[in-house]
Structures are given as structure tokens and as C-alpha cells.
Design a protein around this nucleic acid. Structure first.
Length: 637
RNA sequence: GCGCCCGUAGCUCAGUUGGAUAGAGCGUUUGGCUACGAACCAAAAGGUCGCACGUUCGAGUCGUGCCGGGCGCACCA
């Protein structure tokens, strides 16, 4: 495999250079042109300055001095001084195996994602978060990491309060009535509209915001009707969100909740630590007088001593801000708070635990929190607040944990102007000229995750039916659903994290070109070939050697063999898009192979065995990659 | 005003951490179905990598300064 031959190569080169008394970092590249060989070593360029010699001459000297390396067929000098490496194709092919997960050595990794306010249906922005987070989790697990997935539930915030206001004050509904409504599967869609109505009601009746304040107060610790409504709404919508995400193969280990952070007084513990270590101080003058604040110097690189930029952690009325709670929560994630939640299984969701504030009545609760690295999947708009949280850890002296607190940020999902028009969203003249328009949850604009999935399934079903009219409807629906998952997850992953996605309905609904269904399709065709090929013996070394003389077959094999490398690189750079890109390239490579070679129809028995073997290896590598991406492979398409 | 992100083909985006002749998809034009499935393949056209300096053997990639766009910078969450 590439990752066994690569270290060997590096080691041989290092040993040689050290023998020559040279010290230079050894890097290994993939040549631009496949015809140049499998690896390229630019080491001669790096040495050129040190030795004051032409790179080509240095390269020649290295090649002469290196001698034979197992698995390497030839070393060639090219260009101004590249050393190109050609592998022994047959021995390479014989050494291939499935990408194996290295045993985990490091501590537990915590990945927090989704984190949707439980007051309305999930939309496409939330989908980007959840798909990115879930895929990153799969990437980590596939490389042998121990991972815990958390989905934080802010069930006591203003957003939930606003929906409660809607039910209680605008609709005059009792908790029993709301409970009845909450039984319906798309309760979150109903709340979507209600939330928008409440928002616009505030605009027309600013005095109604008193309702919000009262409701918020009740939800935070009361037991009255408003508090009961708050729990009904939040719990029901959390279930809706989990069902929506389950449609996409996204799951969680534990749901920490804001209400438990309050009841168990996590903040009080964090507050003591912060005061004790002097990470925050009591402001006595200026606009922040009466507040506990963190000085801006803690989280800003080089700041003027402008105290106006300090961050308030505790308000003058004694209540803690969002960031304060977040610092407490982050401390808990690292096991630094000295407190823990209690846990119960979440009814209806096997394997998912939810935080509670009373001692657990269930046996066998796994240990949660206490991670060694924490990834917070949160959009880039919150980078300022994430910086403050990390500064809090640093100020408390937890340097290592601050270092291992990673804001896994991504840019927002906006709508293309064309899609806004399709959805009936009115645009100003100014907006029409923009490449993208930000969606507003408060106004009830945007694309709901479930609706998008439904539309995708309908589209896929039309395609499937046109090809397999004879198949039972339930089966076709299942296949259509798998295609929809593939299309949606791939669409969310094909962009790098720093790219603002201008969500375009037509583009997202496409099943052609660089899409999930294209990749799924190649996997389906490969399986189909294997089914029809029947049992096939392992190819002989002779047949392998002969077949791999063909440059196209050799390049195809190489591409297939890079799955593990692609995922490892994606983990290192924190970029899931690298995996989806590789999956697409792999599928493209198969399309080429498929077009150029008839597998089943091959007359020469030895060569046929090679082609079947190649197809099987491809299928195995692609399916492994798709599994990392959370994309299923339908039995037919 | 300060901070972060973006600017690459008509459009949407990659670009392996500074390497060889800047790549895909869509769209356009042309050709290929008698299913190992055409949700595919092949070919063509399409580029001042926003602009200008700088760093060095070498810059789409690093630095500085401009220009243009997005998002943040609450005693809201």
C-alpha cells in the first residue's frame, strides 16, 4: 500500500542523506503527470542552496547513492531536478488490502454538532452543520479514534420562550392542547410558522416583549404553566430534529441540556474558578460598571487598552451571559469542572442519552465528557465567542485544553436569488444583484431540511421508476431515499468549509456530474458486474504483471488504493470535502475503466480474473469511502 | 474603526500546505446506447489566478499595500 511503501522510501532517503552529513526535511509529492511515476522527491531543490550546486546534479548523486529499495522499480531524474519514483506494479498490487483502522492510542475526542434551537424545524443551514459534524466523526472513527458525539440542547433560551409566547398568549392554548399538537410528527414545522408570527407580532407590538421576559423567567426555573409549555415544546422538537437527522444517518451519543446546566449550577463552579484564578474581574466604572468582565487582552492578539472591548461574563443584575455558560460547559467537556450531569436513555432513540438533573435510575450509564480534544462544529459567525471561551480556559491555566479546543467553523448557507424567487421570497432590487441572500429564521424564510429531503426523494423516485417500473413501490421508495441521502450529503460536503454556500435548488436536485448519485451509480454498476461475474479466483502474478503493463489499468489501481490516504489527509486538514472529492475522482476513474474494458466479456481467462479483481477492489474501496461520508449504496438505481 | 473569511474558465467550485504545461462539474458545440445499466463516456471551445510591489532557484499558494464582496465586533442566545 501507499502508506507502507511511502515510509520506507522516506526512511531510505533519510538514511542516505544522514550518511552524507546532510540535514533536510524529506517531503514526498504526487507528480503532476501520472506518466512521471508514482512519487516525486523534490529534495534536490531543497539542497541546491545549501550545496550551491545545480539541482539536477544533486539529484543524480542521490539516485546513484541510494541503491535498490524494495518495491521500487526505478528512480528517474526529471525536469530541473525532480527524482521520480516508479513502483514495482505487481508487488504493489499484491500487497493491497482494505484500509485498516490503526488502534486508538490517544484519548477521547468530543465532537459537538447540530445544536439547533428546539423551537422550530431544522433548515439547510443546520444541515450543513450536522452533515459536516457527522462526517468528521465518521472520518475520525475510521482512523481508529474514540469519539463521543454531543448535541447541545438550548431548551431554556429566548427562542423557545418565543414559541411558548405564541401558544400561550397568541393562541391561548393550554399545556394539554399543546401536548396533543406535539404528537404530530411535524410539530416542528407548525412551530416554524408560529415562531415567525410571534416575531412579527413583536415588531407591531413592542410591549409584548414583556411576555417573552416573563416566559423566559418561568422556563429557567419555574413550575407554572409557561414552564410546562416550555418543556413540552422543547422536548417534542428535539425529537423532531433527531428524526430529521436520522433520515440522513446522523446520530448522537449524548444530549447535554441548558436546563441541567442551570439546575446543577455548573456556572457557580466555573465562576469560583474564574474569580479565584483572576481570569475575570469586577468592573467598578465605565459602561460595564457592576459586571464581572474578561479583559479584552485575554482574547485579542494586540489590543489597545480599550476597556470598552472587554467581554461581560456576569451582568450587573447577577445573571450569567451565554459565553459564561459556554465556558462552564467547555470545562465540563474536558472534565475540569468537578461536576457531572446525570443521564437517562432518551425514549424512542436507542443508544442516545440525555442529561438530567436528578440521580440516574438506569444501570450501565456510559461515562460522558472528559475528552482530551474537543471539536465544536459551529458556524464562523460565532468565532468571536469561541475565542472568548478558549481565552477563558487559558486564563484558568488550562493551556493544553485551550490548545485542544477546536472551533470547527464553516461559512453559512445562503440562498441563491433564483431559488428565493422559486420559493416565493420577495427580494429587494439590491438583493437580486447579489450572488446570495442570507435566510432569516425569525421571518420564517428558508428551506426546511425535511422539505428538501422530501423533494429529493420525489425526484429520485421518478428516476428510479423510469428505470425499474417493475420493482415494488416500497423498494423503489427505499432506493429513492438512499439516493436522496447521497445527493444531499454530497452537496453539503463538496464545498470546503470556508466557502459560503449559495444554496441553489436546481443545483442541489441534480443527479448528474459531481454529485452523490453519480458516485453511488458507479458503486451500483461495479456490484452489478461482480454479481454477474460469479466466483472468480485470485489473479496469477503473471496475469497481473501483464495486465498492469496497461497504463490505464495501473492508474486505476493506484487511484483505488488511495482511499485511506485521502481520509487521513482530510482528518489532518480538518476538511471533509477532501473525502467527497476523492470519492468523486474514484467514481470517475471507474467510469473510465468501465468504458475501456469489458470485464465479463473478456475472453482471456487470466486477464478476466485481473479485471474482476480490480472491480472488486474498486467496489471495496469506494464503499469504504462512501461509508465514511455516510452515503449508502443502493442495490440498484 | 477593528477582527475573521472570500475573490481562479460564462456560472458553481477544487487546487495535496511553495513545485513540473493552473484542474473538475454545470452550461455551450460535436460524436457515442444492440444494458458487464447512457444518472455514462469521448472531444472542442473557454484563464492577466482582483490589482501592485516584495520574499526565492521557483508564487494561485507566503508577506505588505490597495480594490471589491460577505460575516462578526451587546449587560441577545
Amino acid at each position: 500500500m501507499l502508506h507502507t511503501i511511502e515510509p520506507q522510501l522516506i526512511q531510505s532517503l533519510k538514511a542516505y542523506l544522514q550518511g552524507q552529513g546532510l540535514d533536510v526535511p524529506v517531503t514526498i509529492e504526487q507528480p503532476k503527470e501520472p506518466s512521471f511515476g508514482e512519487f516525486a522527491l523534490p529534495v534536490a531543490f531543497q539542497l541546491a542552496r545549501q550545496l550551491k550546486k545545480a539541482p539536477r546534479a544533486i539529484a543524480q548523486q542521490i539516485v546513484d547513492g541510494l541503491g535498490a529499495i524494495p518495491g521500487v522499480a526505478a528512480l528517474e531524474i526529471a525536469g530541473n531536478g525532480y527524482i521520480n519514483v516508479r513502483l514495482d506494479r505487481t508487488s504493489y498490487a499484491e500487497s493491497l488490502a482494505a484500509p485498516a483502522a490503526a488502534p486508538s492510542s490517544a484519548g477521547k475526542v468530543i465532537v459537538e454538532h447540530t445544536n439547533i434551537n428546539p423551537n422550530k424545524a431544522a433548515h439547510i443551514g443546520h444541515l450543513r452543520n450536522a452533515v459536516l459534524g457527522d462526517t468528521f466523526v465518521r472520518m475520525l472513527r475510521s482512523t481508529g479514534q474514540r469519539v463521543e458525539v454531543q448535541n447541545y440542547i438550548d431548551n431554556t433560551g429566548v427562542q423557545v420562550a418565543d414559541v411558548v409566547v405564541g401558544f400561550h398568549y397568541l393562541e391561548k392554548k393550554s399545556p394539554a392542547e399543546v401536548e396533543a399538537l406535539a404528537q404530530q410528527p411535524r410539530f416542528d414545522h407548525l412551530c416554524w410558522d408560529l415562531y415567525a408570527r410571534v416575531s412579527s407580532y413583536y415588531n407591531d407590538h413592542p410591549e409584548a416583549k414583556q411576555w417573552r421576559a416573563d416566559t423566559l423567567h418561568s422556563i429557567e426555573g419555574g413550575t407554572d404553566e409557561l414552564a410546562r409549555l416550555g418543556h413540552i415544546v422543547a422536548d417534542a422538537i428535539v425529537s423532531c430534529h433527531l428524526r430529521t437527522m436520522a433520515r440522513l444517518g446522523i446520530g448522537y451519543d449524548v444530549l447535554p441540556r441548558e436546563s441541567e446546566i442551570l439546575h446543577l449550577q455548573f456556572w457557580a463552579h466555573a465562576f469560583e474558578q474564574l474569580k479565584e484564578r483572576k481570569a475575570i474581574y469586577f468592573e467598578t466604572e465605565g459602561k460595564n460598571a457592576g459586571c464581572w468582565v474578561m479583559p479584552s487582552s485575554a482574547f485579542r492578539e494586540h489590543d489597545a487598552e480599550d476597556e470598552g472591548d472587554s467581554k461581560v461574563i456576569v451582568r450587573s443584575n447577577g445573571t450569567v451571559t451565554y459565553v459564561g455558560k459556554d465556558i462552564a460547559y467547555q470545562l465540563w467537556k474536558f472534565g475540569l469542572l468537578g461536576k457531572d450531569f446525570f443521564y437517562e436513555p432518551l425514549p424512542g432513540f436507542p443508544g442516545v442519552w440525555v442529561a438530567t438533573s436528578t440521580p440516574s435510575t438506569t444501570e450501565g450509564v456510559p461515562g460522558f465528557g472528559g475528552g482530551s480534544t474537543v471539536y465544536n462544529v459551529i458556524d464562523s459567525r460565532q468565532s468571536y465567542l469561541q475565542d472568548v471561551v478558549v481565552a477563558g480556559l487559558n486564563a484558568l491555566g488550562y493551556r493544553q485544553q485551550a490548545e485542544n479546543s477546536i472551533h470547527f467553523s464553516y461559512e453559512m448557507v445562503a440562498l441563491s436569488p433564483r431559488t428565493c424567487v422559486e420559493l416565493g421570497i420577495e427580494l429587494s432590487e439590491e438583493d437580486k444583484k447579489k450572488s446570495h441572500v442570507e435566510v432569516s429564521g425569525r421571518k420564517g424564510l428558508g428551506v426546511k431540511a425535511d422539505d428538501l429531503m422530501d423533494t429529493l426523494i420525489d425526484r429520485a423516485l421518478v428516476e428510479v421508476t423510469s428505470r425499474h417500473a417493475e420493482a415494488p413501490e416500497a423498494e423503489r421508495r427505499e432506493v429513492a431515499s438512499q439516493i436522496a441521502i447521497g445527493a444531499l450529503r454530497f452537496f453539503m460536503l463538496k464545498f470546503t468549509r470556508t466557502t459560503v454556500i449559495a444554496f441553489d435548488l436546481q443545483e442541489a436536485l441534480s443527479f448528474e456530474g459531481e454529485t452523490g448519485p453519480y458516485v453511488q451509480y458507479s458503486a451500483v454498476r461495479a456490484r452489478s458486474i461482480l454479481r454477474k461475474a460469479g466466483d472468480s479466483a485470485e489473479p496469477s502474478a503473471q496475469a497481473l504483471t501483464a495486465a498492469l503493463q496497461d497504463e490505464g489499468l495501473w492508474q486505476f489501481l493506484l487511484t483505488c488504493s488511495r482511499a485511506g490516504q485521502a481520509v487521513r489527509r482530510a482528518v489532518e486538514s480538518g476538511e471533509p470535502a477532501h473525502v467527497s472529492r476523492y470519492a468523486f475522482q474514484l467514481a470517475q476513474a471507474f467510469s473510465g475503466f468501465y468504458h475501456d474494458h469489458s470485464v465479463i466479456g473478456e475472453q482471456d481467462a487470466g486477464r478476466r480474473q485481473v479485471l474482476v479483481w480490480l472491480t472488486r477492489y474498486f467496489a471495496q474501496q469506494l464503499e469504504w469511502t462512501l461509508h465514511v461520508l455516510g452515503i449508502p449504496v443502493p442495490t440498484y438505481m
